[in-house]
Simulated scan of single mutants.
Amino acid sequence: MSHTAHIRSRRKPRPSVSTIARRAGVAGGVLGSLAVAGASGSANAAETVTQTIELPALTADLAAQVAQSADATQQAAANYELQAERDAAAAKAAEQAKSDLAEAKKKAEAARKAEAARKKAAASRSAERTTLAASSSTASAPSASSSNVSGSAAAVIAFARAQIGDAYVLGATGPDSWDCSSLMQAAFKQAGISLPRVSQDQSTVGTPVLLSNLQPGDILHWGSAGSAYHTALYVGDGKFVGAENPSTGIVEKPLSWDPPTGAVRVL
């Protein structure tokens, strides 16, 4: 026995075949796991790609939704604008109706006042006629009659009566048609008296006389002196001759038929 036989050797023992096989199996298992992991990673990568391919479809849907939302917004804006126009039109119509109502009330008030004024004027004229008729009926009858008239008055009356039946034409001066003042002017011309042409002036010539003290040949007038609108000739017996209107022409009527306002005397 060698003197070194009892000393343990420091060399590592060589692995046995079984050990090598075991280690190879472990390594294979690790590599297999890595391969599986790699395959899984590849699969996951493939699935990621597949999901990425679906994104355009989602983007198209989103675009459609955005477009629908834009359309809805535009329609809402149009509806608001239409409603605003309707509200403005309604407000304008209401304002116009208010203005029309105020104008109608104003016209109605003016018409009411005009009607009241007309009725008042009519009542005043009626009262004036009643007063004149009453004064004419209660006054003493004129003392002179046409039967004993002579001289200038007779000539004037004869001319006026000779025109009875002629037509009344405003502005006419004879010989077959007259107006009230032209008949008076032509009649007094027979007595050599020149009268003014119009009624207003004829009502101021000579001397004013009371209707209760008339004499044949006096000039009667309707309306105030200086603003008379009609004249005629008193012929006695409570009657007058005058060119009255287009309907009657030249006629002889009693004073009560149309009571005069006043009278003047030029003869």
Rank of each mutant, 00 (worst) to 15 (best):
T4M: 05
H6S: 07
R10C: 03
K12Y: 08
P15I: 05
T19K: 08
R23H: 10
R23T: 09
A27E: 09
G29H: 04
L31N: 05
S33W: 09
L34F: 13
A37R: 02
A37L: 15
G41W: 07
S42A: 14
A46T: 14
L55A: 14
A57M: 07
A76K: 04
A77N: 07
A78M: 05
N79V: 09
A89I: 13
E95G: 12
Q96P: 01
A97G: 14
K98I: 05
D100G: 02
A104E: 03
R112Y: 07
R112S: 10
K113I: 13
A117L: 05
K120N: 03
K120G: 00
K120Q: 10
A121N: 06
A122Y: 03
T130S: 14
A134W: 06
S136C: 01
A141R: 13
R161H: 09
G165I: 02
D166I: 00
T173F: 01
C180S: 12
C180T: 05
S181F: 06
S194D: 12
P208A: 12
L211W: 04
G217S: 08
D218F: 12
L220M: 11
W222Y: 15
H230K: 13
L233T: 13
Y234V: 11
K239R: 14
E244G: 05
V251Q: 13
L255W: 02
L255A: 04
W257Y: 15
P260N: 05
G262T: 07
L267T: 11
